[in-house]
Design a protein around this nucleic acid. Structure first.
Length: 203
DNA sequence: AGTGGGATCTGT
DNA sequence: CAGATCCCACTA
């Protein structure tokens, strides 16, 4: 029986992204908005980015954009893609080891206030994709470099006992496959998702 | 100072 | 499958 962490702290995240990425499935991403609203989503899809990984933004060198990935674990790395969408990453591994986990999809625990007239199906797809989840949780560049602590605007909470049990018993399963949208490193099976989750971005 | 490409998403 | 649209890394 795997022991559950009480909290997801820097030590838990200071492992290689390949270990952290699957472990983050089933954990909660919590966003506290300036007006006090809290949004919670169950993480159902992640991708690992590692040193010596040609698809990693930090593959070549340290730059202004990717600098946070070179720092200690437990910080947000957010970037803008195609001029339109944001992608949210969790910095992992030891200080000076550039790596991160991209959060690709969430199951929203509480529907956003302005989504009352959506079908159940549409609701389940609201945060199905890295760009969409950033839209829903209002994650943008200002959060990049911020610490993912409960004192802040964005943090992580561990798997529930029941979720862990379902995994242990095989009632729910993780699926491991290749990453999405890349031009390099396409063959590496560094994407994980929760089987049967309607929020997974792509199968 | 200018250029090109990108870990996306939607609608056609 | 084209297009939206902006930041930043890279070149000069």
């Amino acid at each position: 029986m795997l022991s559950l962490p009480q909290i997801i702290d820097s030590a838990w995240l200071s492992r290689p992204s390949l270990d952290v990425a699957p472990d983050l499935i089933g954990c909660w991403l919590v966003r506290s908005l300036p007006d006090g609203t809290k949004l919670r989503g169950l993480i159902v899809e992640t991708e690992a980015y590692a040193p010596d990984d040609p698809a990693c933004h930090a593959y070549r060198r340290r730059t202004k954009r990717n600098a946070v990935m070179f720092g200690p674990a437990g910080y947000a790395y957010v970037y803008l893609i195609y001029g339109i969408y944001h992608c949210f990453n969790i910095v992992t591994d030891q200080d000076e080891t550039p790596s991160a986990v991209l959060v690709r999809a969430l199951e929203l625990a509480v529907p956003p206030r302005d989504s009352a007239d959506l079908s159940a199906k549409a609701l389940a797809r609201l945060a199905a994709g890295p760009g969409k989840l950033c839209q829903v949780l209002q994650i943008n560049l200002t959060l990049s470099g911020q610490s993912l602590s409960t004192a802040g605007e964005l943090w992580l909470e561990p798997r529930s006992q029941t979720f862990q049990q379902a995994l242990d018993e095989g009632t729910r399963q993780l699926y491991q496959t290749t990453r999405i949208g890349l031009t390099q490193g396409t063959e590496l099976p560094w994407r994980w998702y929760l089987q049967d989750s309607p929020a997974v971005s792509r199968r």
